[in-house]
Amino acid sequence: MNKMKILKGIWKWGKRLFLVLFVGQLIYIVLLKWVNPPITFTQIGSIVNGRGFHQQNRSAADISANARLAVIASEDQLFPDHNGFDWKSIQKAMEYNQKKPGRLRGASTISQQTAKNVFLWQGRSWLRKGLETYFTFMIEKIWGKKRILEVYLNVAETGNGIFGIEQASQSYFNKPAKDLTQYEAAAIAAVLPNPVKLNVKPMSPYVSSRARKIGQQMNFLKPDRDIQNLIR
């Protein structure tokens, strides 16, 4: 009898804790529609690992259209059109990873990367992936594309211990992000796949080549009406 009471008590408190956590995270998501995240797990990890943490948040109005276009061209060219998930790319990545399990390929959209960077830790567990799916869905519904892109440009790691487009622009080119040229924005976007190992300065031949290709894609995407609605 006592054991049943204990189990019922645990169940009761568990439901209350779940409700508190659920309501709390929902309030946090809504709040971040207007307020920048104070710090993320990735940034905390950078501090713990000795890489440091340098960041300057900026509003979309203070970020060059070139920077917004560069990350779309580099990371997620279908960003204006999908609902947070690029299912074709996910399917291709799954097929590739099954054939070559030692060389994992990702297919994360800007929305997924933002959800992961803001709310979660780095890793590949099913739990983290499930939570990433949930938070991606929520920010697509609550924030909208322009806010997702703005937050991504503020929280993405753009160098070793460097976070956000403003800090990257100041560190690499000694200018604010609103003044970035097309090539400078493309160079920063070129290191996003692995910002700890890839560098804008000194720039490796690989990063230089990738920046040029991103610039070509920017020229291709720029006339698109949906892209223009996001970057202007």
Rank of each mutant, 00 (worst) to 15 (best):
P101M: 06
F79V: 08
G159Q: 06
I165A: 00
P101R: 04
P176D: 05
V48S: 01
R147S: 03
R128F: 11
Q55T: 11
L69V: 13
N66C: 07
A73G: 11
A70F: 14
G161W: 01
I29N: 05
K141E: 04
T133G: 13
S169W: 08
R105F: 07
T42S: 06
F220K: 15
V196S: 12
N117Y: 05
Y206P: 02
G50T: 10
I148Y: 06
A168T: 05
E132W: 11
S59V: 11
S46K: 03
I142Y: 09
I110D: 05
I139S: 01
I63F: 00
E75P: 14
S46N: 12
L180T: 12
K197H: 14
K92W: 00
I72H: 08
R210I: 10
R16M: 07
Y206S: 09
S169P: 04
T133S: 13
Q170L: 15
A65M: 10
N199D: 11
L17D: 03
G45K: 13
S169K: 02
I47H: 05
G84C: 03
V200G: 09
I39Q: 04
K99C: 09
Q217N: 14
S108R: 12
N154Y: 01
V155P: 03
V191N: 03
L180Y: 02
P193F: 02
R212V: 12
R103Q: 13
L31Q: 08
Y183C: 01
E150S: 11
K3R: 14
G161P: 01
V20E: 04
F220D: 08
A73T: 12
D76C: 01
W34R: 11
I29M: 04
A65N: 12
F41A: 14
V196W: 03
T181F: 09
K201E: 04
Y206H: 12
R58W: 00
Q122F: 06
A177I: 13
S108T: 12
S208H: 11
S111K: 10
L153P: 00
F18W: 02
R68T: 06
Q113A: 11
D81A: 13
Y183D: 03
R16N: 07
R51W: 10
A185S: 07
L180G: 12
Q91K: 15
K116V: 02
I90M: 02
I110F: 05
K5P: 03
E184G: 11
Y183E: 12
R212E: 10
W121D: 06
S59A: 14
M94F: 13
G102D: 13
I110L: 15
W87C: 05
L69T: 11
F22D: 03
Y152K: 01
N57H: 14
A115G: 01
N229K: 15
P176C: 07
L192W: 00
L131V: 09
T133E: 05
W34F: 15
S169E: 02
L127K: 13
P195A: 00
D81R: 15
V155F: 10
A67P: 04
G14C: 06
R232N: 15
D86T: 11
H54S: 08
G50Y: 07
I188G: 10
K33I: 06
E157Y: 04
P202G: 09
I72T: 12
A65C: 05
Q91S: 06
F220E: 10
F53A: 09
F18R: 07
K88Q: 14
Q91V: 14
L131F: 14
